[in-house]
Amino acid sequence: MPVMTLAEIDATGRKAARGCGCPWGLAEEAGKSARWLASHGLPGAESLAALLQDNEGCCVGTGKPCALALGASLADRAATIDDEPVRTAPVADPLLVIAQMGCAADALHRSFLLEWHGGRAIVGRHTLSFEGSAMASDMTCRAIADPDNRVPPSPASRTVAGQAWAALEALAHRVLVPASDASRAGAGAGLQDND
């Protein structure tokens, strides 16, 4: 299985989501979510690859927001989430919602409890506790008291499932512009370099 840096998981995740048709802003959340999950030992690149492959294009405008879009919307409102549970529409994969609330917890120094059929997760600044399994379900999210843990996860590289990584790279490839005479000439002056 390939070993990838967290920066590579972030960048490839972002480009893959964009390649799938997501707007750039949401694609940025996709990369950050994959990175966050991987840093906490969860299958971030794999979850994102599965979502992007299932979606066959971005959910935006279809009226059926995917886990990425729902998670982004929930995280956008994280500052006002209190102990009253907020319920989401059903999502195929709770991990991508958890990741975005995890990023929000990091930024806001707050903690949230997320629950779904099959599991629960608590995210706080730099922390995650996860029970059960990720399965399709609606979710609830509420704020809880801040757990006292401030050690960030290791920034070391992580192994990624080969098939998932290949899928992300194939999607990421779609944001690239094929080589042309113009692109080759574009960056340099075309001068001799033996001087």
Partner: peptide, 23 residues
Amino acid sequence: WYVSEEKLEPRLGQRHEEPGAER
């Protein structure tokens, strides 16, 4: 601005003359 397939490097294209602006 785009990223070239050849070397994964940022490039600057002419929108009205070159292909690729959709990326």
